[in-house]
Design a protein around this nucleic acid. Sequence first.
RNA 1: GGGGCUGUAGUUCAGACGGUUAGAACGCCGGCCUGUCACGCCGGAGGUCGCGGGUUCGAUCCCCGUCGGCCCCGCCA
Length: 605
Amino acid sequence: METAATENKKNIYRTLCEEITGQDTGKEFTLKGWVMRYRDHGGLVFIDLRDYSGVMQIVFDENIKGESFKTAKKLKNEYVISVTGAVRNRPGGTENPHLKTGKIEILANALQILNTCETLPFQIEEETEVNEFTRLKYRYLDLRSKRLKDNLIFRSKFTYLIREFLNNRGFFDIETPFLTKSTPEGSRDFLVPSRLNHGHFFALPQSPQLFKQILMVSGFERYYQIVRCFRDEDLRADRQPEFTQLDMEMSFVEMQDIISVTEELFAGIFEKLLNIKIGLPFKALDYEEAFDKYGSDKPDTRFELIITCLSDIFTNSSLNVFKNALSTGGTIKAICFPNGSNLLSRKDIDDLLSAVKDFGGKGLAWTKVGENNSLDGGISKFINDEEKASLIKRLAAKNGDIIFYQADTKKTANTVLGRLRLYLAKKYNLIPENRFDLLWVVNFPLFEYSDEEKKLVSVHHPFTSPAKKDIAILETDPLSVKSDSYDLVLNGEEIGGGSIRIHNPLLQEKIFKILSISPEDARLKFGFLLDALSFGAPPHGGIAFGIDRILMLLRNENSIRDVIAFPKTQKAYCPLSDAPSPVKDAQLKELGIRLYDTANKNIKK
RNA sequence: GGGGCUGUAGUUCAGACGGUUAGAACGCCGGCCUGUCACGCCGGAGGUCGCGGGUUCGAUCCCCGUCGGCCCCGCCA
């Protein structure tokens, strides 16, 4: 990626460090920025001046007349200065190949200190990693570092390219309310009390889902928004309480239309921003295949370790765990870890067992593959020659591999091996770097059974359209019904998902019935959407993407916090602003709110 | 709600069976230095060992509680 400055030549009011090149020797410039480093050699002072474009070395020489040398002696790290001088080539042998401007420097003849700086709580660009809490508290300092600054500049370009692409294709950027109605479905809402309606609350939107559908009813046809969404759930490295989605909705479309627009959008961005060409169309996997082969609905396809079913090979197995699994309707599955015998010690294998238990597995059977298609160790003595030959052939196992087995229900065997697969890949560096695998997961089931609620629930959301071919079996065999929905997966992370929506009120009624949502309930929860759908709603569908996650992956970061200017800690606290914080009694009174119990003692009087 | 790791100088870390004055590096302050670029050299300051309680003659160290941070499970239609 080009740096901000070299690409953006439209700087109107001043010169930036990296705009100056070897072509400019002899010319005089005034640069403004921060003292990144200060090196005092007595009669000669060097500083590295940093502005948002990059770095330029400034030299102060005691032989240059004027006050600048004297002033330079007072400089300290992160002082803000304005410095004027002529560009010159550095003396032979003193060029710095690590700097973009390393062949030149500016010999200062005027210097003005625009602002001083307190001793820093941590060094900017320090090699050692500083505690994240401290970095968040002084986020403005951390954002001066190249890494975070580049991330945010990249983010700006990323969203610019999205807007450019979509605007060129007739999409309209339309804002939807942040103060909206709480819907009990989905994730926990952030609530906002209403002063004018005591006892009533707004919710911050989990996404603009209902409003974007209503915009389709209004006839906008192509909507998008890069919009903040709010979910009051526990945080993770890839989850913040507020995050940004690219939200899209289109009318008179079918699934393939949405998929095509998305592919074009991403292929364009990857090429422009990363100079990576992505083959079209993207790969696609059925939901079921994803689970069978990767044990996940967001498979990481950058490496193999494919999960393989061996049930038929072991129908007459002498091993009890295998026998029991099969007789209770379960399955036997395995992954073959190439060269595992050499990579894993016996202790490593034992350690895997505890990992597998964390993943929900009961145990971990394994065998090593020896010479001439033999099996050693683990459960090998329970595997007869016929079974051996079949499984080695099916897994394409070679001398030195290790095979890990799971005998369990299909679901458990898949998820356990899926997580083991990821665990092994990370631990033994099987994941190639700088590779981006974009993948659609399609043919999701429309419903799944919730053990908790003892009823069918939507896999996506209640407005997702069933696949046309399955509408006939909606009531007779709901669990076999597929939906017209699709997820986009990048390197094993779900980065987006969407669906074709139901626009037929009768079909929508049927779905609610299957979901055991009474007409009264439906009205209470989504009445305004149902009304809208009854007034000439066009066929429509859409998709939404997690911008933060995508950026995290493209920037090779481990957390979305590193691509967000002002993120929160895992307890959803902002060390910079000290939010959330108690409020005054008077504020609560105005809202008609009184706090329960312990919270009271935190109130500021 | 649960599991794991974690909290010592401004920062990153070390530390000791529980025993004088808690160390290092970087940063900071003062001085020297004309080709450095993580400049170098000399000197100096800087610590409620997260907080509260307990055990003990004595606790940064052991025990209990609590607060914070990071990762994960649950949760996130």
